[in-house]
Structures are given as C-alpha cells and as structure tokens.
C-alpha cells in the first residue's frame, strides 16, 4: 500500500478539524474509504445514498479529475500522491 494525502475543502474541514489526512491505499477509492472510515460524517457528505460520489463533489488524483477517466475512483495510487476533494463550480 502507498501512503497518500487526502485534502478536503475548508467547509468540510469544519466537520473533522483538519484539511489533510494521510492514508494508506492502493487506489483512490480505497483512500477515500480510509478517510471516511476514520471520519464517518464525511461518508455522508461525499457519497450519496447509492454510494456514488455526490454530483457536485469533484475528486482529483494529483492533477487529474477522476470523473474524466474510465477507471474513475479505481485509479491506482502511488506513494506521495495527492487526492484533492473540491466542490464543483455550480452556476450562480
């Protein structure tokens, strides 16, 4: 397993007290599972009732938006990778 860092937006950090969490995982999905297992309220905040990433939640693996790749959250991670949760820009 590789140690990667997961960064979350400040508005979600108010739920858990930190903006960055280090986890050990082989994939983005596993990293997020580690994150939500350690901080359960994030599970409900990031994923909908079907277990799918909420529509306006973006998950970047390093500089790549996981939604743009066929593997999605199944993308493999390497040691030192950075996973970033972002709020999608929604029209205003």
């Amino acid at each position: 397993m590789a140690q990667v860092s997961v960064h979350i937006p400040s508005i979600l950090a108010t739920l858990i007290g930190v903006r960055e969490v280090a986890v050990n995982a082989d994939s983005v999905k596993e990293a997020l599972a580690q994150l939500t297992s350690r901080h359960p309220p994030l599970e409900q905040a990031l994923f909908d009732e079907a277990g799918v990433l909420r529509a306006h939640v973006l998950c970047f693996h390093n500089a790549e938006n996981t939604r743009w790749h066929a593997e999605g959250l199944d993308r493999a991670v390497l040691a030192g990778d950075r996973i970033t949760i972002l709020q999608a820009v929604a029209g205003g």
Partner: peptide, 8 residues
Amino acid sequence: ASHVYGPL
C-alpha cells in the same frame, strides 16, 4: 444541509 454535501 448543503447543495453539494447533503444534510448532516
């Protein structure tokens, strides 16, 4: 609640 992150 949040339109992005749902209710808690």
